[in-house]
Amino acid sequence: MLAWKDFNKKSLSGYIFLALIIFLLDYWPLFVPLKNIFNWPFQSLRESVYCLNNGDWQKIFSSGRTSSLEQENQKLKEERVRLIGEVALLQGLNDENQKLKSLIDFYPEDYHFLPAKVIGRSGDYLIINQGEKAGVLLGQLVVSAQHLVGRITEVYTHEARLVKLGSSLLEWPVLIFADQPDCFSNSIVCQKGRGIVSGQIIKEILREEEVAEGDLVVLLDDPAGILVGRIVQIWESQDKLFKQAKIEKLINPDRLTEVFLIVK
């Protein structure tokens, strides 16, 4: 008691020291039990005060009828959120339906499609959510509408990895044709040249072939006609025997969320 009185007389330095000690000790969970004891009786008070701070005065002072109306309102809001989710789901299904329809219109009848979702990417690869269980095979082509996305290189039970279009890991024989009406559905007639695409470069285009910037590039075979890209630059190769061209992709594989695997 005497020590406490003495402490009181010393005042400032003692209190500041004590406050500093408490301040430092609060970096450890030493005062947590004290805070819990303190907070327990104040919990409902805090809730009321939080409502007050949010301007939600009605929640505290509302009558029984008002309260039930508010509950009903809250339920309606939750129902609205659920319905918005359902609409989004239906919209997604509709989009998928539209894409499948365009695939059926474009490809021969004996081709089928397996839809897959892109679930990740790393470097030149995309990862899809279909694997061996769904019948995915090595070398299978992956498309998005009429555009080539890549080729399956690794198959796991429930996942598969594909090399993206534009990667230098794969080479594709391609056909070059003019970007004119009716040429897309009949590319063989409008063809201007052939080559082998590796990465974003088309190699081994014969010098006499009249390829030009803006021409479209499609896969040559198996199945033919899948869009690879558009020529943006042409130059002669170092050995002067061939031409080379740079292509730009018409889709960005990194932005895709849904793709289709071609099943023969």
Partner: peptide, 8 residues
């Protein structure tokens, strides 16, 4: 708040 801060 951090215990002791307002005291200081």
């Amino acid at each position: 708040r951090h215990l002791g801060s307002w005291s200081i």
